[in-house]
Amino acid sequence: MASVATTDIVAYMENYIMKNCLWQFHSRAWDRLRQNEKIIGITSQLLCGEEVDLSTPEQKCYWIDSVILAENYKKNVPALADMSVEEIKDVMTQLKDRIDYLTVNGSLNLELTDKHY
């Protein structure tokens, strides 16, 4: 029962990203993997109430996209409020794997592996 709910939550989160965000669609595979890791990672930190490293412009730039995500998830996934840090991290890991799959590993975009910009 818990896993069904988790699937729904991940599906909601995935759908929000794919409908509204652009950060997951940089033009190369390595960029996408990094973007996904950082932004979903920081979103996870925000949802878990953890402190985020904002020491560089690069980090700030990931963080701002994460803030928007976290805000939306908190508002539209009330179940998050009752989840433990572990459960949240589990959901977010599933989300990251799913976004990695959609945008890199399972992607049919042939330009992702081009060496040059």
């Binding site: 652009l22 940089h26 033009s27 412009p57 996209d65 910009y117």
Partner: peptide, 18 residues
């Protein structure tokens, strides 16, 4: 996006897609 990628690579200026 090309020039944004280059500016990130060479000058560490982050790229924000809006």
């Amino acid at each position: 996006e090309y020039i944004c990628n280059e500016l990130r690579a060479r000058y560490n200026i982050p790229r924000l897609d809006i």
